[in-house]
């Protein structure tokens, strides 16, 4: 009895001590995963994911509280990058074949109130007070913040039209 207790105690103590020393010796700083994740997100702070800005989304991703497909403006490429960073397999089918969209202003409805102008996280809408606003296609992420802010429903999202340089073949069998 005594031998058994003693030997297991000694064994446990010795191994525990060894591991303790090893933990000191091999100590590694935890990675700054949140910052890395935030760098992958678009950074437009649009809030479509339901988290407070991209930093909040990155935190939620790191905690495993959000899927990698959380970012609608980022689309497939961001989801893939996040999945790679987190070492998980992304179920990209959840995203579907979301077509890139951009905002347009219907001139006959625009009253030049500048509300959309202020809501836009990327300064993609230009114009001034009492002037019709225009959208810069290159800067628009299609986040729809402006759509919600417009009092006259003059702002809408339309799919980005294909051009000869952006047209691509469809996936075979998915015509």
């Amino acid at each position: 009895m005594l031998a058994a207790v003693t030997s297991l105690t000694v064994l446990g103590a010795a191994l525990g001590l060894g591991l303790g020393i090893a933990a000191r010796r091999f100590h590694v700083e935890p990675e700054e995963i949140v910052a890395e994740l935030e760098a992958l997100l678009p950074g437009s702070q649009c809030g479509q994911c339901g988290f407070p800005g991209c930093a909040g989304a990155a935190q939620a991703l790191a905690d495993g509280k959000a899927p990698v497909t959380l970012c609608p403006p980022g689309g497939k490429s961001v989801a893939q990058a996040l999945a790679e960073k987190l070492g998980v397999s992304a179920d990209l089918s959840a995203l579907g074949e979301s077509v890139p969209m951009f905002a347009t202003v219907r001139e006959e409805l625009c009253i030049g109130c500048t509300k959309c102008f202020k809501a836009c996280p990327t300064d993609a809408i230009h114009g001034a007070v009492k002037q019709i606003h225009a959208v810069l296609k290159e800067a628009c992420t299609g986040c729809a913040k402006c759509v919600d802010s417009c009092p006259t429903e003059a702002v809408g999202l339309v799919p980005v039209p294909a051009t000869l340089t952006t047209w691509t073949w469809h996936k075979p069998g998915h015509a």
Binding site: P42, G43, S44, T122, A124, A139, T168
Partner: peptide, 20 residues
């Protein structure tokens, strides 16, 4: 190529956001 384009776009948008 489309992925690449959207990456470029999101980078430039990131700059815009930062500028804003």
């Amino acid at each position: 190529a489309a992925n690449e384009r959207s990456k470029l776009k999101s980078e430039s948008i990131k700059k815009l956001t930062a500028a804003r």
